[in-house]
Amino acid sequence: MPASSTHRPPVNRDVPLVRRQALEGPYVLLTFRHPEVAAGARAGQFVMIKANTVSDPILRRPFSVMRVDPSEGAFTLFLKIVGPGSHALAELRTGEEAGCLGPLGQPFTAPPEDQEAVFVAGGYGIAPFVLFGEELGRAGRRARAFYGGRTAADLQLCDAFDGLGVPLVCATDDGSFGHRGRVTEAVAAHLDTRPGPVTLYGCGPDAMLHAVARLAERRGVPAQVSVDPWMGCGLGTCLGCVVPIRRPGEARPKYHCACTEGPVFDARDVVWP
């Protein structure tokens, strides 16, 4: 059973592509017209979307909402082409349509008033933090972003926080850009400076999320992670997206749908593989 959502129900519609901006390598920014997503999506929420120009693969794919423009009635995705579904979306021409359901899932919860939000992003996991940075900025909260990838070419959104007052630290495994090494090492170094109370927010590959959870536990700071399982429907009906979650006081982990009860979970509750 889905958690009865406190948000507006998602809206299913065919959405025309309004803008396409190719970035380096396999990355692209896609803007679609969907007034309800534009008006209602919160950071951490996602859409299920599929180009109407192809029939196979048959299922829609989940993508985080990166930016919304309510006046234009449009939202933007930051997409990495990894397979046929993302490829077909990236190939859409302006005016061509995709089937799209959203906004879906539970968003990030803002930190308490006096705390700094620390974003930890790996690869395309940066997407929801652009929206989160804007939300927190409007609410007058402090945020800071750590953005990691294998190599410089994976860090395509370094300018997304310009003008938001969100300081950005980049890290690459090969040292081709920013700090050399894992992004979580850069976060640990920041925590070493005793920045005051913080909440960590993670979005990226499982291994990075696990590292964020361990770091949060060692330093005794709260953390929310946006998990990245396979998703088939986005509505809690296919039960393909379940993750084992053990809430405080529960003896055994239980499967929870990442699409309706997540994708954002308290890092302490996630049972890591």
Binding site: I58, C238, L239
Partner: peptide, 22 residues
């Protein structure tokens, strides 16, 4: 509780599932 993941994979024009009747 159903089966462990992966529970669903896509195949050409199809879907293969083992949800385990959660």
């Amino acid at each position: 509780d159903g089966c462990p993941v992966p529970r669903i994979v896509e195949t050409p024009s199809g879907l293969l599932n083992a949800i385990g009747l959660q």
